[in-house]
């Protein structure tokens, strides 16, 4: 199994759907990730390098709640809400393998977030289900992959004197 791959048009379609509801729920950030924390699409107000970390932590957090769910006889929790003083995070499972993560202000009601996601969930699930079953070879068989330079190290060890 060589992982899975997202086509350009699928990525754009996911972004369009997120864009449709991000304004309605006044989301600070809205993203779709897989359960490993890889981001497939995102709609964020301000570019922030920590979005990747947020996705990884959200995936880990959701996985932990899935184990909690199993311990009480539920296959999984469909959604999880972390309520903060100023901002909150809402996570919803999609097509078993994916998550929608929404970061919203305290002024946005949890019900509104759910309602907005319900609107686009069927379309998201169609795209995500198709994505989960496709490899790079399926969508771009003519792509030739090769290492930039087989002899070079990927990451160069810095001068020890430059170490913090």
């Amino acid at each position: 199994m060589n992982g899975y791959a997202l086509r350009d048009d699928q990525g754009r379609a996911l972004n369009r759907l997120l864009n449709r509801i991000a304004g309605q729920m006044e989301a600070e950030a809205l993203l779709i990730s897989d359960i490993g924390g890889n981001i497939l699409a995102q709609e964020i107000r301000k570019e922030d390098e920590s979005i990747q970390t947020i996705a990884a932590l959200a995936a880990g957090s959701f996985a932990a709640t899935r184990e909690l769910a199993r311990m009480i006889g539920e296959p999984e929790f469909l959604s999880v809400f972390h309520r903060g003083r100023e901002q909150s995070i809402f996570m919803q499972s999609l097509a078993s393998q994916f998550l929608v993560v929404a970061i919203v202000q305290k002024t946005t009601a949890q019900g509104l977030v759910k309602l907005c996601l319900e609107k686009i969930a069927p379309e998201l699930e169609v795209i995500l289900t198709a994505t989960a079953g496709q490899s790079l070879a399926d969508i771009a068989a003519d792509t030739k992959l090769e290492l930039a330079d087989d002899d070079d190290d990927l990451f160069d060890e810095p001068d020890p004197d430059a170490q913090e």
Partner: peptide, 30 residues
Amino acid sequence: CKMVMSQFIKDHKMATERPAANPPPAKETP
């Protein structure tokens, strides 16, 4: 990292050289 990438490239090469039994539909997402 090199081992992981080499494995990925090898798997991709094998998949592209193998005739697809059920090629996925190539239609675009509307």
